[in-house]
Design a protein around this nucleic acid. Structure first.
Lengths: 228, 228
DNA sequence: TCGCAAGCGAGAGCGGCGCTCTTGACTCCG
DNA sequence: CGGAGTCAAGAGCGCCGCTCTCGCTTGCGA
């Protein structure tokens, strides 16, 4: 079973998610195609396993980057930059895994509950950075005013340890909503780079990525220093 | 040929890009599968045609939204909001077309020159809004300082009518780089919403989208009024 | 020690796919 | 009337996901 997953990972790296073939994995293992079905229910189930692995991998990368930055006493803004750079490095090294989770969903669509827990790890890192910014007062949003009521689910506030939505100060709730911009700029920036939308547009990809992340973060209120 | 494209569009809407089958299109047309190869070289070539159509469609939507906002004498920030909302509406109505251009590239990768011209339409809209902001002085970036030298290609400055990179003032060049954040937040926000990353996180999808766009735009220097 | 059940893999087979090649019908023009 | 060109159909190749049946092995209770 672990051999099967290893072989599938390899195939994924080589051919991409769309071309991942159960028969090819079976051939790699020197086994008949039907034998694979003893271990995995279907091709989609195999993909789901790889999706969970990918979520865990990117979550781990984000956690480690954040921990490293905090160990160096970085302010929240620099911690976020470190996380974003870490995720980018991972995505460039594992483009097919990135596709798997942030690209087009392959089947009709699914999202079994297993994937949700793994996906939360990255969100947790973002939330923790926002909270850190609230606490040390370095969070000074340039972002717009808006009414945050009803935008996000109660689960999110509970997840961030803020209690019921009614108990959350308006400015804090706005901060939570704004944190989506961190996520969106990260996914969007990586999508643009990996899928060729910067072709003939950007020359210095890491530089453009940093600038994109830092500009979006400035709207959120995290002022990243790119010159230091 | 036009019937073929129409049928392919229909199949795309129904089944998605990954499941678009040349044989199915042929069946819809009441024609043998081999007959389709008279008109289109391969499945990928058919997809490329649809990709160009999608780029043109989203470009047109963006242009019309910008024109409408300008006709109403909106400031650049509100024009950008109108464009983003227009693109979102289009993406929700045509999710498979959105996937085609901003999702995972289906084949190895290609990007024939045909697609580049169509893709530029959307960039042109973004650039025009930025220039408008420069001109009327409403562009006040909260974004970080960085050295913009060498980040973007000379083509971009030429495309924006700014001449050679050496002639562009540093702050203007920074603005051009920052405009990538508009693009990234748009793609990232839509990716997150369409591909289920806001599941159990956001309640009010249009509201979260607006807030995301406006927050990122604030970093760029376009201050969108969401309350008015 | 024997017998049986459970687990496992191989192979054949189904329908569908992209794509190619041959064959035959139809049209147009010298 | 006859050749040339255009077009579609059909068969066929190798691939895919998936199912089913059939043997082989293993292990365990009698």
């Amino acid at each position: 079973m672990s051999e099967l997953l290893a072989s599938a990972r390899e195939r994924l790296c080589a051919d991409g998610a769309a071309n991942l073939s159960l028969r090819a994995v079976a051939r790699d293992l020197g086994v008949s195609s039907s034998a694979v079905y003893r271990y995995v229910e279907s091709r989609d189930a195999l993909l789901t396993l790889l999706i969970v692995e990918a979520y865990d991998a990117v979550g781990l990368v984000a956690e480690e980057a954040a921990a490293g930055a905090r160990a160096a006493a970085s302010p929240p803004a620099q911690t976020w930059l470190a996380v974003a750079r870490g995720v980018r490095t991972w995505a460039l090294a594992n483009p097919h895994s990135f596709e798997l989770i942030y690209g087009t969903p392959v089947p009709g669509y699914q999202a079994p509950q297993d994937t949700v827990a793994a996906a939360l790890r990255t969100w947790a890192v973002i939330v923790s950075i926002m909270l850190e910014g609230f606490d040390d007062g370095s969070l000074t949003p340039a972002g717009p005013d808006f009414d945050p009521d009803g935008l996000v689910t109660a689960e999110v506030f509970a997840f961030a340890g803020m209690g019921a939505p009614g108990d959350v100060p308006t400015e804090t709730a706005r901060g939570v909503v704004r944190s989506f911009t961190l996520f969106a700029s990260l996914i969007g920036g990586l999508t643009a780079e990996l899928y060729g939308h910067l072709h003939r547009v950007a020359d210095d990809f890491p530089g453009v990525f940093d600038a994109t992340i830092a500009t979006a973060a400035a709207g959120v209120g995290l002022h990243i220093d790119l010159l230091g």
